[in-house]
């Protein structure tokens, strides 16, 4: 699997249509599951980059229940997304559909978040499976492979090594 690591966050591809994001947290998985599913906690961290605030966070945590997230930028821009829960195993696993109001990739995606604990550290593995290979590739694969993700300044060296 092709991966790129920045700090503790790993992003890579899996199969044809998925990308996988892995991050370790120094906390028991129950707390991670809470942080992912309790609106008052989600709002505190899922805010996005500077300038953005999570203004709506509604979670109906049951299979078939829906969730809705909205963010507002200090300059007034807004964006939103939501989906429906498909599988819930408390403290272990969440699967839900994902669709952005103004999506930058075609179709939607299914997001599975697995919480694994060992030695006081919880590994959260998020798998995003897009409707099509094209959508996934558009988000991740092609630019990763071509080295674009590594920065244009390093593109020359990378391409020279891989294709020369």
């Amino acid at each position: 699997m092709l991966t790129k690591e920045t700090g503790k966050l790993k992003i890579g591809e899996s199969g044809d249509r998925s990308l996988v994001m892995t991050r370790e947290f120094n906390a028991p998985r129950k707390l991670l599951f809470d942080a992912w599913t309790k609106p008052e906690l989600v709002k505190r961290w899922l805010a996005g980059p500077d300038g953005w605030t999570m203004t709506v966070c509604e979670i109906d945590l049951q299979v078939g229940g829906s969730y809705r997230y909205e963010w507002t930028h200090e300059k007034g821009n807004r964006m939103g997304m939501g989906g429906v829960y498909r599988e819930i195993v408390p403290n272990e696993l969440l699967t839900a559909t994902e669709k952005f109001d103004e999506s930058w990739y075609p179709g939607g995606a299914i997001v599975t978040t697995a919480f694994r604990e060992g030695g006081g550290v919880t590994t959260v593995e998020t798998t995003v499976t897009y409707d099509s290979k094209e959508a996934r590739d558009g988000v991740l694969r092609s630019p990763m492979e071509s080295g674009v993700a590594l920065g244009y300044d390093r593109l020359e060296k990378l391409l020279a090594e891989n294709f020369a």
Binding site: T6, G7, K8, L9, I11, M21, R23, F25, N26, A27, L31, L32, A35, L41, R44, W45, L46, A47, G48, P49, D50, V139, L140, P143, M144, V148, A149, G151
Partner: peptide, 19 residues
């Protein structure tokens, strides 16, 4: 892509503090 990554890194750093 860098913004996508940075975005998640910022989220997760906030989550570290919250945890």
């Amino acid at each position: 892509l860098e913004r996508y990554r940075e975005c998640w890194e910022q989220n997760f750093q906030r989550l570290d503090a919250l945890l």
